[in-house]
Every structure is written in C-alpha cells, then in structure tokens.
Write a protein that binds this DNA or RNA. Structure first.
Lengths: 193, 193
DNA sequence: GTCTATATGATGATAGAC
DNA sequence: GTCTATCATCATATAGAC
C-alpha cells in the first residue's frame, strides 16, 4: 500500500551526521566546514544545510549525547558514599571510552574551548548533570564549591587523556586511575576541604 | 649619523602581535584570520605575512610566554616540601591572572584543543616545565604518573577557571583555591597514591 | 530526496610598486 | 616598511530544477 519513497529512510542524513561528529570531535567547530563534512560523507554540500539548516544546526545535532549524564551521575551517587569518588571516575571513563560517547563529548569539549555558545552549553550540562545532583548528594557545606572542584578534576582528566593524550594517563587502565583520582573526588565531595 | 628609518622601530609589528595574541587567545587558531588580526591592529593584511611569514609563524610568535615556566616550577619546587602543592597552585594562578601571561597561555590552551601542532607543543612544554622537574623533586615512585596527575588537575583548573568560567572557581581568590587544590597536588606529588 | 547553479563574501599567500 | 592588486580556494547559504 505504501507507494513512493518513504521519508527519512535513506542513509544520507546519518552519513552526514556521522561525518559531522567526527569533524567537530577531531578538529573543533571553526575548522570543520560543511563542505568537508559533505565530502567525507560522500554527499552533496547542499544536503547538509538541507537537513540541518545551518552549521550551527549541524553542530547542535552532532552534540547529542548517547546517554543522559544527569541520570548517570544520579545512579552513581545513589550507591554507598564510601567509594563514591572512585565510582564517578569509573563511570566517567566508561562513557568516554565507549566510541559512541567519545565523539559528541570530544566535540563538546573542543567546541566549548573556542565557541562561546558551546561553552555555555557545556557549563549548562555540567550544572545540570554534575553540580545539581552533587549539591544534593553531598548535603554538606558549600555544595557549589565542592561540585566545581569535582568538575575541575574531571575536565582535567578528559583533557589530558583524550585531547592532549599525555602519558601515562592517556593509556592508563580505568582500574589504575579510579582509585587515585577517586580519592581526590571523594575529598572534594565529602571530605574536609 | 644614522640616517633613514631604522628597522623595527615602527609599532606595527607589535600591534599585529598584540592583536594576534588576543585573537588566538579568545577565538582559537582556526577562527582567527590574518585579515581579522590586521583589521584589529589597524594595518594592512599583507604586513602580517610580511612580518611573520605565515599564519603558523604568527601563531608561533603569539605563543611566546612572558615567563619561563620551567624556571618557575623549579623555583617552586625548591622550597620546603610541606606546602609544595599549595605553592604550585599559588604560582600557577599568579602567572595566569597576570594579563601578559594569560593571553599566550589561553592561546596555547585553545590552540592545543583543535590544532595538533599546538597540542604537541603544549605536551612538550608540560613535559619540560612540569613533568621533568617534578620527576626530580618527587624522587618517590612513579614520577611520570605523579607528574601527569598533577598536570591533569592544573589543566582542569585552567579550563574551568579561564575557559569555561565555571563558578565559584572562576572568581575564587587564590587564597581560597590554594589550600584545597594544593592538598590534592601535594598528594599527587609526595603522598600515597 | 537529490542535485546544479549561484549569490556573496572571506581566506591564506604572493608579486611587486612606491 | 608600507601598500595595491591579484590568485586560487574556500566558506555559508539560497533558489529552484528534476
């Protein structure tokens, strides 16, 4: 009964999105061009704006995270508080090390550094996904400060490991990093400052 | 006796360099154009390449740090080891908070995130200015690992404070940050991991 | 859904006049 | 030391044919 081409079933849109994710993730916002994206996707440049409206629209779409970080943190915070910091590091690395997650997160990090809109978005995400949940979990004093400290160490981890690729952190196993960095996060969250 | 225009005494080169520093520091490598630099410097675009050869040459020149970080760290490490971490944070913030330092360092950080050459340069700088000196100071086990951990927290501090501008870290006084983060660095350097 | 054509403008770099 | 002129590319975005 359904005759004619059904909408949205040609792989083109996905190909463009995949190419955009890679571009934004590896080169950042400014250095990624619509034409370049179209080239690596093997499609016509016009299709990019046709599907996503503009470069910003494409960027927006490429930034969609495969997981909800807020829910993730919520889950992590739900467990016993003794090894809270360690669990955060483990989950953080798990999400980043999984390929579908690293793309958008790297794109967001790269974007945030030179694209103000993207920086605001990351600030927002951090606030919603880390600061707020943490503010509740660590009912202790100064939740904002504790959460920001936590963010600083996590972002530092991401930058050294995935962007700068500084050894030996870049190739360290999660089991190696979790205890030592977890201890820091644990103190930032529940310990004496 | 010296007749004619002496070389290098027209403020143009400096104006270009200042504009370039600001551009690279606030927008990153890709988003900063030679023409844009020339525009804010109030000079002809050709002069930019005339003085610096190419965009990479200009970038290189804009990255020249006003201080030698290696010497700085060396000095800091020279003092008593008890409050070593705290001194590192204090010095780090001092250098970043001073205007002439923040430009090139921000430029380097922004560049490193999306410009591979710049990332290599920062890796190199970290290695020479932080990893190596630390490897000597903390004669303990695993100096490479300790130094990388230190770098991760310092970079995280820089990104949250100066790039993301995440509160309350962004506007916190050095006196407020030094003790709490210094404690982390202290453990990374000399404490049990 | 796909593409050609095009408007409009910026980019990095060079050659050469003054 | 400064500038004009120019090259060859690239960019984002639109209108409209098929």
């Amino acid at each position: 009964m359904t005759t004619g081409r059904r909408p949205g079933d040609s792989g083109t849109r996905d190909a463009i999105l995949a190419a955009a994710k890679e571009g934004f993730a590896t080169q950042g916002y400014a250095a990624t061009s619509l034409r370049g994206v179209a080239r690596t996707a093997g499609v016509d440049p016009s299709l990019v704006t046709h599907f996503f409206g503009s470069k910003d629209g494409l960027f927006e779409a490429a930034l969609a995270l495969p997981v909800d970080p807020a829910a993730l943190v919520e889950t992590v915070l739900g467990g016993p508080t003794g090894r809270l910091g360690e669990r955060i590091v483990r989950t953080f690395l798990l999400v980043w090390d999984s390929t579908p997650g690293q793309g958008p997160m790297l794109a967001m990090l790269r974007g945030a550094v030179s694209h103000e809109d993207s920086a605001a978005k990351l600030r927002d995400l951090l606030l919603r996904s880390i600061l707020r949940p943490v503010a509740h979990a660590a009912g202790a004093d100064d939740p904002d400060r504790r959460a920001a400290l936590l963010a600083s160490q996590l972002i530092g981890l991401a930058v050294t490991r995935y962007v700068l690729r500084l050894e030996p952190i870049a190739s360290a196993a999660p089991d190696e990093l979790a205890p030592v960095m977890g201890k820091t996060l644990q103190r930032y969250l529940t310990g004496p400052l």
